[in-house]
């Protein structure tokens, strides 16, 4: 069968399988985002270290990660690391690769967010004798957060849209599953369309969510307890 004769019955047949795979995609994105935020924040803070060596090493790591394709990093983690005795499941590899790759991008977002906090806030913190840790935790990061939200959100959506790259290491995410369904049934139209629609749907929901978070976030920042 060819052409645009959409088969609703087939669509509903394959829907549960694809939705099941969507969970994997979402899980990889969710865990990847969490890791990316941790990695990004760590890199951002290391870039502000008092030690020149720490600053420049971090700079080069970030540059390296940002200027090599995600797929290369995925392959490296999946096929090369086992040679060093570290083998990981496709999901874990995917989460690590996404987290590292997007962490490098997020570190720039976080860095400019932190830089955006007024110098006077640092000076007041120092005059009050707050430790560097407390200054970041109580004063600087709570104020830096809001301006970081839109860019962070965009990167997370971008990450979500790049999860199909993980199919290259046999992760059964949405696109991979759709392809398998297609090749088994000789029908690609419905599964791929479904995947496309789901991506669109999730992206729109996420974008709206980010918008809401940003709008409801107090302009001055938040107080962490």
């Amino acid at each position: 069968m060819n052409g645009f004769d959409w088969d609703w019955q087939f669509t509903f047949e394959v829907m549960p399988t694809i939705l099941e795979a969507a969970k994997v995609t979402l899980l990889a994105t969710l865990l990847g985002s969490c890791l990316a935020i941790v990695v990004g924040l760590s890199f951002a803070l290391l870039r502000r270290s008092g030690f020149f060596l720490v600053r420049s090493i971090t700079y080069w790591i970030v540059e390296f990660v940002r200027s090599t394709p995600l797929l290369v990093q995925i392959f490296f983690l999946y096929y090369v690391m086992p040679e060093f005795g570290i083998s990981m499941s496709p999901l874990l590899t995917g989460v690590l690769a996404l987290g590292l790759h997007y962490g490098a991008y997020l570190s720039e977002v976080f860095r400019s967010g932190i830089d955006g906090v007024e110098k006077g806030q640092w000076e007041a913190s120092r005059a009050l004798n707050l430790s560097v840790f407390d200054t970041y935790k109580d004063i600087v990061l709570p104020q830096a957060l809001r301006p970081m939200i839109p860019a962070t959100g965009n990167y997370i959506i971008a990450m979500f849209k790049e999860t199909p790259q993980l199919s290259a290491i046999t992760l059964l995410e949405m696109l991979q599953v759709a392809k398998i369904i297609g090749s088994e049934n000789f029908r690609y139209l419905e599964p791929f369309t479904l995947v496309g629609v789901l991506y669109l749907l999730f992206s729109l929901i996420a974008a709206y969510g980010i918008h809401c978070v940003e709008r409801r976030f107090p302009k001055e920042g938040i107080t962490l307890k």
Partner: peptide, 13 residues
């Protein structure tokens, strides 16, 4: 030592 600043530098949040 304690310091009071020209531009207050209160913590806005």
């Amino acid at each position: 030592l304690g310091m009071v600043f020209q531009h207050f530098n209160l913590f806005p949040h």
